[in-house]
Design a protein around this nucleic acid. Structure first.
Lengths: 185, 185
DNA sequence: GAGTAGAACTTGACGCGTCAAGTTCTCTTC
DNA sequence: GAAGAGAACTTGACGCGTCAAGTTCTACTC
């Protein structure tokens, strides 16, 4: 509650159109992730986030990534990643390895079993994304969604000036690839 | 890898535009709620969801609602609501009351303290919604967002045919009002 | 070359959401 | 009028994410 000092700007409440847009937005913010998560759990016994982790790894040429890079790519804290990767490791879907030399590095590598899990899960995931979102949209809506997402991303970053500056490559939105990376079949 | 049996529909991977839209969407799905939540926590010591609960109550003429109705309006399970309301009750922001007669009803009523908390939190919340989302959008994007949200909502409901049928009024998206309901000042 | 800064994790405690089970009512049916 | 069926919650255990601390390294500095 900071409201005492000076002429605080009057609150601009949302008008009809804005309110409707915001309301509609909560379907995207709340129902969509819940639906995707539930389906992933049902069809592949994976959390949406776990799928992201495995999926990102599967896109790497050697199916390997350093923990901090993985964290950046999946928009997770290192701590969260560490916990999740620990569990996935116990399930045999990936393996960690301490890298000697430079700093205290660790990499995670997808195992064969892990790779098979991603490949099996990917079609269902893409189908869900189409079913719940993409296939219902007209081209111009697809374009609008793209712009809106970019605007949101920019607005949020504007709020937290830097957050870090060293490790992360181009700070990218969480990726959920178009399909698993093909290797020699 | 399941691809052997029969003519399983080929997976339609996302093309460039679709992928970009999906990627952008994850900013809305992931970063936006996190940002709103963090800000609400910082400015009002409330979870986004707790704010929703208090806010919905504040919009009722008597600041009172039956638990199941509240659950429907906030898109939460009765169990989750029960836990959250329990905590809010301990903080003195609302009070529960068993209603004798018809079934095993319980209502939650906002206390004066709870009302003051919502009123204090609302301007910041609306400001955040504007800052992170609404104010960055052109009118046509606002309209598109509205349509996209509606499409997502419909698509998800299509997936889970009924879910119940008795209690809930028009199944509505979670509301986060335009401003706290005015009473006699 | 010892000390300090700091990057890159890991770990444990704690809080919140979910799931399954339990409780308490009413209403129907025979 | 006794037995179900079922609506409307509540409760407890468990899992996952967060936050604060701890651990290991490298690199710089004097």
């Amino acid at each position: 509650m900071k409201k005492s000092t000076g002429p605080v700007a009057e609150t601009r409440w949302l008008n009809g159109d804005e309110l409707a847009a915001w309301l509609a937005n909560s379907a995207i913010m709340i129902s969509l992730p819940a639906a995707l998560d539930a389906r992933m759990q049902r069809e592949a016994q994976l959390t949406f986030f776990e799928y992201m982790v495995l999926s990102v790894l599967s896109e790497q040429p050697d199916r390997t990534m350093q923990m901090s890079a993985l964290a950046a790519r999946t928009a997770a804290s290192l701590s969260r990643l560490s916990h999740v990767v620990g569990r996935l490791e116990k399930r045999g879907l990936l393996a960690r390895k301490r890298i000697p030399g430079s700093g205290r590095r660790t990499t995670a590598t997808l195992t064969e079993a892990g790779y098979e899990v991603v490949v099996a899960a990917a079609p269902g995931h893409v189908a869900a994304v189409r079913e719940y979102l993409i296939d219902d949209l007209e081209p111009h809506e697809l374009a609008a969604l793209r712009r809106i997402g970019a605007a949101v991303d920019a607005a949020i970053k504007r709020g937290q000036p830097d957050a870090s500056s060293a490790a992360s490559p181009p700070p990218e939105a969480p990726t959920i690839h178009s399909g698993p990376r093909r290797t020699a079949d």
